[in-house]
Nucleic acid binder design. Structure first.
Lengths: 252, 252
DNA sequence: CGCCGGATTGACTGAATTCAACCGTCGTGG
DNA sequence: CCACGACGGTTGAATTCAGTCAATCCGGCG
């Protein structure tokens, strides 16, 4: 769904952080040029992931953190009993793998939802330069804090809201994040299935489908398979208003 | 509910981290003596909070992080509409305020559930010594990672589980955490009301009450007001087993 | 003693799940 | 080129789990 502004073949080249359109969202956000150079020194690029490919798996040791350059990723835990829980959807500029910092191994699995290119940040090297570059360390803390905040916003939603409000929240969240990345906040593609959305929001996929239908009947959105157009953002906002605004920016 | 092993008047004195029984749980966990001295230099102690007193409030600027020395704290967000969502219960050794790192102001409110004594870590000073003491920085990252992991475990629960399983999870979580702190994992007091438990678990307080009754009828626990005895830990574990074990240690 | 807040218990209601049928699109292979 | 099957999505009907409303209980405190 999310296409990089750069031509496709660029995904395979080293795009420096300084040139990357995601500078303002990603880890380098507030670094000065000297600090940026330090960070760029450790960034590694990999072949893009195809839809369904796994970036890292629960239990693997924490080799690296990953920033999404283009595409999208779902973070999930697969329980032995076959059940699965999706914990988040990540867009370009998001940093993945932070949960693993607690135990030195990933606690979740990260799977590409579409063709996705990734910047890899070897964790040990990142930690060492963090102590050399205070600005980077602070930025790293900021991103972790936001990850916590984003999950709290999600807890708030799951604890409080009805199906209708959850789906409205979800759409608004995606809309905002697309906007932040320079894409249209009103027309975009869902890179995840109804099943994924339902799982993420704690709803049955049928409920998701029905709520989409309601929103469409009300004239607030148009939805055709994975393609969404939002016609009345304010109507959706009103739905979630009686609960709190989510301020968390990244991730969730 | 949780009483410090030290006599009460000690709460008002500076208990050094090196002497604190929570060393193994708290921020100082893996620091060597020299590093510990650095950390101790910035720790400040305050008068204990009384039940219902607020440690920090959503929106206040992030002055400090706080470690619980004794007592317990609930973390919650109060929505303008009057509704509230509890995001976590914290016990001695837990570090509070990490969510604020993302935005430089607290995103939640922290309220004492009982008489609670606190160690204060001024945030700016903590950040500066983090860059000087790599071990501390790493430990700090570890705690943030665990906070993320704990919230993920909670998301998993709210997305997946039925009322019965949620309450069983909750009891097991409290039991484990009491055990880790040297208290009995089988007999303890709930410092929070049924209302709080329900709110936290995404259930009505009546449902909490009924599920407690069921567990009691089954002979798995005894519950009298705030006092809990667990008789069959394995029965509770079996209830949550078909979902995943939560490995997250701290917080949630 | 009587009040108040927290907790329990019961009856009813309803939102969302589950089960099931059906549709449309896409990709594959005859 | 078309037929077929698979998958993802939609829609409908029945069920159920938990929420809501309401009455009651209990212990603590003024």
């Amino acid at each position: 769904m999310v296409q990089s502004a750069a031509p496709l073949n660029l995904c395979l080249l080293k795009v420096s952080c300084a040139e990357c359109s995601l500078m303002e969202l990603c880890l380098p956000r507030r670094l000065d040029p000297a600090e940026l150079t330090q960070l760029e020194g450790i960034v590694r690029h990999r072949r893009p992931l195809q839809r369904g490919e796994v970036l890292y798996r629960r239990g693997e040791s924490l080799r690296a953190l990953y920033a999404i350059h283009s595409g999208s990723i779902k973070i999930h835990i697969s329980a032995p009993g076959g059940s699965e829980q999706i914990l988040g959807f990540h867009l370009p500029g998001n940093l993945l793998g932070l949960d693993g910092c607690g135990t030195d191994s990933y606690t979740c699995t990260a799977t590409a939802l579409e063709t996705t290119s990734i910047c890899e940040l070897p964790y040990r090297r990142l930690e060492s330069i963090c102590t050399l570059v205070p600005g980077l360390n602070r930025e790293f803390h900021r991103l972790m804090g936001r990850a916590i905040g984003a999950e709290q916003a999600m807890l708030l939603m799951l604890g409080n809201k009805k199906a209708e409000e959850r789906l409205a929240s979800f759409l608004l969240n995606l809309s905002r994040r697309h906007g932040e990345r320079g894409f249209s906040p009103l027309n975009f593609n869902l890179s995840m299935s109804r099943h994924d959305i339902g799982n993420y929001l704690g709803l049955a996929l049928e409920t998701v489908s029905r709520q989409f239908a309601h929103f469409q009947e009300a004239g607030w959105i148009s939805v055709d398979r994975r393609e969404i157009s939002i016609h009345q953002l304010d109507a959706l906002e009103k739905l979630v208003a009686h609960s709190l605004e989510e301020e968390a920016d990244n991730i969730a």
